[in-house]
Computed example of a mutant assay.
Amino acid sequence: MAELRLEELSASNIVAANALSLKPGQEQFITPVSYSAAAAVNDPATTWQRVVTDGDDVVGFVMGSFDANAEHEEFTSILWRINVDADDQGRGIGTFAVQALADEARARGKARLFVIWEQGELGPEAFFVRSGFKPIGETQYGETIGALDL
């Protein structure tokens, strides 16, 4: 594995980011209902989007948001989306991306980074817990709210 790097999402890498594949069954966990509801009012100026590259290859995508004016605490510093290509999962790419977003949150003076996930056998809960997120509550839709203390 070459050295992992972050690059801003741009016209030159968005096609590769959109082409990231998932393992069977993972697609149902990509966008919890809470994310879709919040996205309707999410300010693009507060969004932090990066691709993870390994050499010249895009192997992952991470999207966070930092919105001091968010109505709900969990949306003030949140991991909105993380995708790692199916063939590259298990290589530490997701952990790298979460750590980069946590570093950005810290640099912005945030004390916590949040994430929301849906329960399910093939869902992301084990990954988020391994990454240091602790379940702290539920959304109105029954999804888990996790927090990573920074």
Rank of each mutant, 00 (worst) to 15 (best):
M1Q: 12
A2M: 14
E3W: 04
R5A: 08
E7G: 01
L9E: 15
L9R: 15
N13G: 15
N13S: 13
I14Y: 03
I14R: 07
V15Q: 15
V15P: 05
A19T: 10
L20H: 08
L20S: 08
S21I: 03
S21W: 11
S21T: 15
S21V: 11
L22C: 09
K23P: 04
K23W: 07
K23T: 10
K23H: 13
Q26P: 00
E27V: 13
F29K: 02
I30M: 13
T31M: 11
T31K: 06
P32C: 01
Y35G: 06
Y35F: 05
S36N: 08
A40M: 13
A40R: 14
T47E: 13
W48P: 09
Q49M: 15
V52W: 02
V52S: 00
V52D: 00
T53K: 12
D54V: 01
D56A: 14
D57E: 15
G60L: 05
V62N: 09
S65Y: 02
D67E: 14
D67H: 06
N69Y: 10
A70S: 11
A70N: 10
E71T: 13
D88F: 14
G92P: 00
G92R: 04
T95H: 05
T95L: 00
T95S: 07
F96H: 02
V98Q: 02
Q99R: 14
Q99F: 02
A102R: 15
D103V: 00
A107S: 09
A107Y: 00
G109D: 03
A111P: 00
L113D: 10
L113Y: 08
W117M: 11
W117C: 13
G120E: 04
E121Y: 04
L122W: 07
L122H: 09
G123D: 10
E125K: 15
E125C: 01
S131W: 02
G132Q: 04
G132R: 02
K134A: 12
K134Q: 08
K134S: 07
P135T: 11
E138W: 09
Y141M: 01
E143Y: 01
T144W: 05
T144N: 06
